[in-house]
Design a binder for these strands. Structure first.
Length: 341
DNA sequence: CTAGGGTTAG
């Protein structure tokens, strides 16, 4: 009997620096896949499912499906893996379709399967499906563990039912970082800024450590409610936690400063970014510059924006309205101004 | 005991 030594860690292929996630190295994974098939381990349900999962995580969803389709006896875990893969890459219709196929095949979903289905509902705003799954959970007495509860809270929040999300969240006995984050982000996107910030303070009292997603919610709440100083305080707080700001965090801060009409400060803040600002950041700045009639800064933002998204017609309209807003058009000036450009 | 799950700005 061949040992697992077929996959030899001293082999040149396997000895390459190990990536943090499979996503970063689909190439090596395919080498392993090839070896798996040749070594005869391909018929193990564990190996088959791991391969489906691997390809899905590499966003090679077509390969994942191919391996899945070739599994002779698909069990619950195999179905769940494929549904999860579709859900994660945003192919929600495929996720729903496969969930239906799975039930038609007589495979009964468990809480792990339903987390992926609920997550697909949240991503697509499919409240009807989400409610159906929730009813299914209640009817079949499926264990609503931490992950499933969090998925439900997130789904209701994303689908506009913030009261339902809060109700479920309050009923949870154990809440971890992801549960709190879902709730805080949900409150923030629903304009419940006070509640979001209060939830954050309760989270601290409960000694649950916030992460980068938690701070997206907190900063969002500050931006939406115009709390510039509070937002800046949380920004420092985030850095103290050793959380490296991501594009989303910078986006929230730019939004925070721009909404408060601190345009110059927002521009200066963007200058300090160690990562290249994306189109959302430049667009936020451009809109603020337009509103504050700051053509100089607006032009810079507009130029960067057009470099990043030359095919987005909206950007050209924004930039033209920047010039329009600054020229203070009156009846007499109209001709002069238009002749200039 | 080994294969599947939740949170991220506009």
């Amino acid at each position: 009997m061949a040992s697992i030594g077929v996959i030899n860690l001293h082999d040149p292929i396997m000895a390459a620096p190990s990536p943090k996630t499979p996503r970063q190295n689909p190439f090596e994974g395919r080498q392993v896949h090839s070896r798996v098939v040749r070594s005869g381990f391909g018929s193990s349900p564990f190996v088959e499912t791991a391969l489906v999962n691997f390809y899905a995580k590499c966003e090679e969803i077509g390969f994942a499906r191919k391996v899945f389709d070739e599994i002779p006896e698909r069990n619950l875990v195999a179905w769940s893996t494929m549904i999860s893969g579709y859900s994660k890459v945003g192919m929600v219709n495929e996720a729903f379709g496969l969930f239906r196929e799975m039930q038609n095949a007589g495979v009964v979903p468990d809480e792990v399967t339903l987390v992926s289905v609920i997550s697909a509902c949240a991503a697509s705003g499919a409240l009807g499906v989400g409610r159906w799954v929730h009813a299914y959970i209640d009817k079949h007495l499926i264990d609503t563990d931490l992950e499933l509860s969090t998925a439900l809270v997130n789904m209701y929040a994303k689908c506009g039912c913030i009261e339902k999300a809060i109700e479920l969240f309050d009923a949870m006995l154990v809440k971890d970082t992801k549960a709190w984050s879902s709730m805080i982000v949900g409150m923030a996107i629903h304009g419940l800024e006070e509640e979001a910030l209060y939830a954050f303070s309760r989270m601290e009292e409960d000694k649950v450590k916030p992460n980068h997603v938690t701070f997206v919610g907190v900063l969002l709440a500050c931006a939406h409610s115009g709390r510039v100083l509070v937002g800046q305080k949380y920004w420092s707080n985030m850095l103290e936690f050793g959380i490296e700001p991501s594009m989303e965090h910078y986006g929230c801060m730019v939004d925070l400063l721009c909404r408060a009409n601190h345009v110059e400060e927002a521009c200066a803040f963007v200058e300090t970014m160690p990562i290249f600002p994306n189109a959302v950041i430049w667009r936020t700045l451009l809109v603020a510059c337009k509103k504050n009639r700051n053509v100089d800064k607006g032009e810079i933002a507009g130029t960067r924006l057009l470099e990043l998204e030359p095919d987005n017609a909206e950007n050209y309209i924004l930039l033209s309205s920047l010039y329009a807003s600054s020229s203070q058009w009156g009846e007499d000036e109209l001709c002069e101004e238009t002749n200039e450009g």
